[in-house]
Design a protein around this nucleic acid. Structure first.
Length: 588
RNA sequence: GCGCUCGUAGCUCAGUGGAUAGAGCCCCCGCCUUCUAAGCGGGUUGUCGUUGGUUCGAAUCCAACCGAGCGCGCCA
């Protein structure tokens, strides 16, 4: 990566300059040098604004600092080998680098060498992170909002894993408490009604239509064998069976969406294992709880919450918070270095309570990161598609996936940042044109594959109908592939420096080269959506390149070099798409 | 009322302390005898919600206000 190498050169210059006392009181470079790509071509290929950032500590005007650094870079003999053609200092204190094509060649060679590992980093250094997400109640179908959490969590997990963390993904199953009881009543009533018994359906329960399709297969399988049961036993039995059916359907659907969990953690298990009662004891022991009006309260207010929270109601039943505290204590005990919990934004009111409970247990609250995902609005032809669960008109995740496909579903849910609401346009997601970024990116990948096929497969002449032998033989191709890794200068023929088209050629390679930086940025900001937008940019740059630079030509060295460039582009597109879990098709 | 999130082009959204604030869509004009035109090029578009403050420098940080969404239970 050129920017990394360049950052090293700049940092060395700064350290040398500070050693010789040329940068005021500064001892060495206090923060990492970041290299950016200037917007305007006259500002060079790459630039650093470090002098602006050092101004305060060095107590010197930025422009002076830039001049000093530039001076040291020019004196650095190794710097010449970094493909720096010339550099310029520009106000208010930027150092602009103009580079030779050598760095483009090295970048391409690096992509070929690292292949599917290109862009992978080791920020995580093997540290263990647990990502908990979706965690829906097993009381109905998943809707598009769950889909967003699912896609976000899975993309973030992919990203963590790509930057060197050992990732585990977990689904917390809220299979305890009143909602499951409620499910039991509904299931029991529905079971009887489906067999002709005229019993009332619980008015306050889950909509009948939202459960019917889960009960029908149960009726098919068990027939009337449970009709004998009394109301209590019936609700328990049917509730349990329905819960299992729903969980299995959720698991299957998520798997189809490319979302797979290492563990499904049952809330019930926290109750049966006494984890909940023991966490309450722990609060008591640490004097972080007290009894009042017959209930047990967590002293949340002194730990950053706006008020204290109930852990055990006066009825003796523990609250959701108590179970969540026990659950998170369990996560800590499992020894993770980082815990990421993804919730729908409608649960943001619970964040201070959970944080307080973690602090009350003297656990490191810094390790626990709670990320909230905002709502998804479904659109069709500009009309809002309502998602009212009560009215029974809920649009399920499955319906969306059936309609627009898995790739488009994933792309649109992955693309935007979690703190912003999504407007998911069902019609746009189905479109096969440039307007639809999901399609456009895949088309770019398929186009790369088409060029490779064209170069290496037999072609049928349109006029004569005769079969023509491929431009490149299999032997030539494999020979080239190994040259791409070992001889960066074989890419030189891909470029036309000085020519108008060179800007497109350079832009594409620069974009490919910046992938590792983009990955780092996406990982540290927890915004995998950046990968989606990056892939779009690559696709766009590829199309521009394609338009002006013919790959298969009469000149074998040009064909070879450009084919190498196309294959590098295909690789980077595939890597970026794989991080967001969207497929990279060979043809379309 | 309090809290959280958000407010950037007609629309959908990037950009979160640095150069003249970007991209796509929409609209207009060009480009197919050549590897996928399902494409490409060019053009038009801004009180960065408002007002103050911090800073050499603010869309970005701080405060107040305006607007939108969500949340404020011994529900889960």
């Amino acid at each position: 990566m050129i920017s990394e190498r360049l950052a090293g050169v700049v940092e060395r210059a700064i350290n040398k300059a500070t050693e010789e006392g040329k940068l005021g009181p500064l001892k060495n470079c206090p923060f990492p040098v970041s290299v950016e790509r200037p917007r305007l071509p006259e500002h060079g290929d790459l630039a650093v604004g470090i002098a602006l950032k050092l101004a305060g500590q060095a107590k010197m005007p930025p422009i002076k600092i830039a001049e000093v650094i530039a001076d040291y870079i020019e004196k650095d003999e190794q710097a010449g080998a970094k493909n720096i053609e010339r550099l310029a200092v520009a106000p208010p204190g930027f150092i602009n680098f103009h580079l030779s094509t050598g760095w483009l060649e090295e970048s391409l060679s690096e992509v070929h060498n690292k292949a599917e590992k290109f862009g992978a980093l080791n920020i995580g250094e093997g540290r263990r992170v647990l990502v908990e997400y979706v965690s829906a109640n097993p009381t109905g179908d998943l809707h598009i909002g769950h889909g967003r959490g699912a896609v976000y969590g899975s993309c973030l997990s992919n990203l963590f894993s790509f930057v060197g963390f050992a990732v585990e993904q977990e689904f917390y199953v809220n299979d305890a408490g009143v909602q499951i009881q409620q499910l039991g009543y509904c299931a029991w009533a529905l079971y009887q009604r489906l067999q002709g018994r005229d019993v009332p359906y619980p008015e306050e329960g889950y909509p009948e239509d939202s459960l019917k399709h889960f009960l029908e297969p149960l009726v098919k399988e068990y027939g009337s064998s449970f009709l004998e049961l009394d109301a209590e036993e019936g609700a328990k039995k049917l509730g349990e069976l329905t819960k299992m059916t729903i969980m299995e359907s959720q698991r299957k659907l998520l798997s189809r969406l490319g979302v797979n969990f290492n563990t499904w953690f049952s809330e019930t298990s926290l109750h049966t294992s006494d984890a909940v009662t023991s966490v309450l004891k722990e609060f008591e022991k640490k004097q972080k709880s007290y009894e009042s009006e017959g209930a047990l309260w967590l002293k949340a207010k002194e730990l950053g919450d706006e008020r204290d929270r109930v852990l055990r109601k006066s009825t003796g039943v523990t609250t959701y918070l108590a179970a969540d505290a026990a659950y998170h204590l369990d996560k800590y005990k499992r020894g993770f270095d980082q815990l990421v919990t993804i919730w729908g934004a409608d649960h943001h009111g619970q964040v201070p309570g959970l944080k307080a409970s973690v602090k009350a247990l003297d656990l490191d609250a810094e390790k626990l990161e709670i990320i909230l995902t905002q709502i998804v609005n479904l659109n069709r032809e500009g009309q809002m598609v309502r998602m009212s669960k009560r009215a029974g008109t809920v649009v399920t995740l499955e319906e969306v996936m059936d309609e627009v496909g898995v790739d488009a579903t994933r792309y649109y849910l992955a693309e935007s940042n979690p703190q912003n609401p999504i407007n998911f346009d069902l019609e746009l997601a189905k479109r096969t044109s440039r307007e639809n970024p999901a399609f456009y990116i895949q088309y770019a990948h398929a186009r790369c594959c088409a060029i490779l096929r064209k170069a290496t497969e037999e072609q049928v002449n349109q006029e004569s109908g005769a079969t023509e032998k491929p431009v490149l033989s299999a032997e030539q191709l494999s020979e080239y592939l190994s040259e791409f890794k070992k001889k960066p200068d074989c890419f030189r023929a891909a470029f036309d420096p000085g020519h108008e088209v060179f800007q497109h050629q350079k832009a594409l390679v620069q974009k490919l080269d910046s992938f590792p930086d983009e990955v780092r940025e996406a990982a540290v900001t927890r915004l995998p959506g950046r990968m989606a937008r990056y892939a779009y940019d690559v696709a766009n740059d590829l199309q521009k390149f394609y338009e002006v630079s013919r790959v298969i030509t009469d000149d074998l060295s040009v064909t070879k070099a450009r084919l190498g460039l196309i294959l590098a582009t295909k690789q980077v597109l595939a890597n970026a798409l794989s991080l967001i879990g969207v497929s990279a098709p060979e043809r379309m």
